[in-house]
Simulated assay, not measured.
Amino acid sequence: MGAAKQPRKRDVSMSTTESASLRYATLEDWSSSDLVAGILEGQYAAIAAVQAASAPIAEAIDRGAEHLARGGRLIYLGAGTSGRIATQDASELPPTFNWPYERAITLMAGGKDAVFHAAEGAEDSEQLAIDGLDSINVSENDVIIGLAASGRTPYAIGGLVHARAKGALTIGIFNNRGGRLGEVADISILIETGIEVLSGSTRMKAGTAQKAALNCISTGVMIRLGFVYRGLMVEMRPTNVKLQDRAVKMVATLADAEYDVAKSALDTAEGSIKVATAMLILGLDRDAAQQRLSAAGGNLRAALQGPKD
């Protein structure tokens, strides 16, 4: 019998990512189209669970931006699927926002090799996380995001406890109610995704929910720090032909200029979208535009709102 014909079974109130559901007991007999429908249903449910956690996610954005504005780093802690999702989020901040690589760090249980090859036992060691944090001298300006679907992974828990003792802002993202990860974090983000289509396979609903939450936090923090202007990635570095064209179009849009004029300004600004935009809007040369931006802390909106020279 396929998923479309399967009657809905009400899961118990304390269902977790490890629970099994009668609804999926005959999963291997479902048609492929019903499998797609069932799996996608879980993905929709994952996003709904993230939406229910919007208040602590918003708090993480505001408090995280305050710490990072003081020169802190965004440091992710995770094991297995959670660590890989964290690694993806961290790795995309430098090209998207020109965020320094040394300020977007992932500590993965089992080390970098565990991103591609499972190192399941490493998640049981709190000391590995402590050693990793000590190796990068975690401090009070840093923001530490620990992720664990179960909420009870020793690696993530031990890391957050240690980072919090150092004065860093700690954020715990987990999917099972009662997980200790939420108890040891400054900001507890429970994203209750419940039973997986494949019992215990947290790369599915739980993983989707974790990535969506990280999208909100990291992007929201960058917006709060002024790395976005009028919905555009003005910190982006044009490192290939596609991005160079995108950068020119951004400058042209922001400065209401012709494409060729925007391209010339961007070339003069050595690829800086913000400098090129300030040059055209404020009528400044490159050095004066750069000084204007520096005085505004790199915030393009603030630089443009000041008096024209």
Results as ranks from 00 to 15, higher is better:
Asp34Glu: 12
Gly179Asp: 02
Gln88Pro: 01
Thr26His: 15
Ile173Glu: 11
Ile39Ser: 12
Lys211Glu: 04
Arg203Leu: 08
Thr277Phe: 10
Gly194Arg: 06
Leu40Ser: 13
Arg8Ser: 10
Gly207Cys: 08
Asp186Trp: 06
Ala213Lys: 01
Gly226Lys: 03
Leu214Gly: 12
Gly179His: 00
Tyr259Gly: 02
Arg286His: 10
Arg292Phe: 11
Gln305Val: 09
Leu74Thr: 09
Gly220His: 06
Leu266Gly: 09
Leu198Ser: 00
Arg10Thr: 13
Arg23Ile: 03
Ala114Gly: 01
Val261Asp: 05
Ala278Cys: 14
Ala269Gly: 05
Asp11Glu: 09
Ser150Asn: 04
Met14Lys: 10
Ala185Asp: 01
Ala252Pro: 01
Ala55Asp: 13
Ile85Tyr: 04
Gly132Trp: 00
Ala58Glu: 10
Ile187Arg: 04
Gly146Lys: 02
Ala3Thr: 10
Tyr76Asn: 14
Lys249Phe: 02
Glu235Cys: 14
Gly194Met: 07
Ile57Gln: 07
Phe174Cys: 14
Gly226Glu: 01
Leu107Ser: 03
Gly80Thr: 06
Asp285Phe: 11
Ser188Ala: 15
Val251Pro: 01
Ser218Met: 11
Lys308Gln: 15
Leu280Ala: 01
Ile171Asp: 07
His117Pro: 00
Ser15Met: 05
Val184Phe: 03
Glu196Met: 04
Leu93Gly: 03
Lys112Ile: 06
Met279Gly: 04
Ala119Arg: 10
